[in-house]
Amino acid sequence: MYSLNFDLIFKIAAIGIVISILNVVLKQAGKEEQSQMLTLAGVVIVLMLVIQLISELFSNIRTIFNLY
């Protein structure tokens, strides 16, 4: 039974908020490029998580509905 783990939800929300706050700080410090890099890094981290989940979802669906 794949349990409904809340930590994944909080992890993604935390990454999003922290990245955005750091962005504001970087913009104050005048480092525009770093803040854009940081946004990219944040999205990439969250995407890695989401892609793992999507691949698990699709493999489950493939086995259940024998969609080859």
């Binding site: 794949y2 409904l4 939800i9 993604i12 990454i15 969250v46 998580l49 989940l53």
Partner: peptide, 16 residues
């Protein structure tokens, strides 16, 4: 991030 998070919620409920 909201779109990604809503996708994750959908997947987790289905996997459950």
């Amino acid at each position: 991030y909201a779109v990604l998070l809503s996708t994750v919620v959908g997947i987790l409920v289905f996997l459950y």
